[in-house]
Lab assay of single mutants.
Amino acid sequence: MISLIAALAVDRVIGMENAMPWNLPADLAWFKRNTLNKPVIMGRHTWESIGRPLPGRKNIILSSQPGTDDRVTWVKSVDEAIAACGDVPEIMVIGGGRVYEQFLPKAQKLYLTHIDAEVEGDTHFPDYEPDDWESVFSEFHDADAQNSHSYCFEILERR
């Protein structure tokens, strides 16, 4: 099963200049909980913004210009990325925008964090048809001392 995991502000903004323009430790914990011990696929820009392999996960970098870091697996196509994951129950696609666009048609599940923030962004989550998805989990949280904005975790499964 292919799943996408993303944090989205208003207007589906997911990033600005290779960074997330908010401070939500709870979302980072949600991300870790849902990706640990699963292969993660990301684009080169996302890889560069993280700066290191995510521990406890097979890191697969999709790029037309593969790098030389041998701590991760470099691939040039969506099919190659899927094959590099091996026989696993769930593959997690973690961004960025172009990689989400490439995998959305193949995805069966979306793990979304909806952030109540209007922020400037240069990267967006692809538009998706809500009628194609069923919400199977939703959990709202107010902003607090650690988390700069209110947010809602949601899991959607393709109908």
Rank of each mutant, 00 (worst) to 15 (best):
I50V: 05
S3I: 03
A26R: 02
N23R: 06
W30Y: 15
E154D: 14
S135K: 15
G96R: 01
L8M: 05
L24R: 01
Q102H: 14
T68G: 08
D87C: 04
D132M: 06
E139Y: 05
F103M: 04
S63P: 00
H149Q: 02
E90S: 10
K38E: 07
V136F: 11
D131E: 03
P55E: 08
W133M: 10
A84L: 08
I14Q: 00
M16G: 01
V13G: 01
S150P: 04
E101L: 08
V136K: 10
T113V: 15
L24S: 03
E129K: 13
L28F: 12
Q108L: 08
P39T: 15
C85N: 14
A19D: 12
R52L: 08
F140T: 14
G51R: 07
L8H: 04
S49V: 03
E157C: 06
K109Y: 13
C152R: 13
I61G: 03
K32C: 02
L62N: 02
D144T: 05
V78Q: 11
S64F: 13
M16C: 10
P53A: 10
W30N: 14
E120C: 11
F153S: 05
T46L: 00
G51K: 10
P66L: 08
G56L: 04
Q65V: 12
S150G: 06
E154N: 15
S138G: 04
K109T: 12
W133P: 02
E139G: 06
P55C: 08
Q146K: 06
L36S: 06
A83Q: 07
G51A: 08
D116E: 14
D79L: 04
L28N: 01
E48V: 13
W74K: 05
L8T: 11
I14T: 03
M92V: 14
E101D: 05
P21M: 01
P105C: 11
N59Q: 04
A9S: 13
S135L: 14
V88H: 14
D132R: 13
N23W: 04
K58E: 05
D127Q: 13
Y128W: 14
R12C: 12
R159F: 13
N59G: 10
E129A: 10
I61R: 02
R159S: 13
Q65T: 10
N59V: 13
Y100L: 02
D11W: 02
F31T: 00
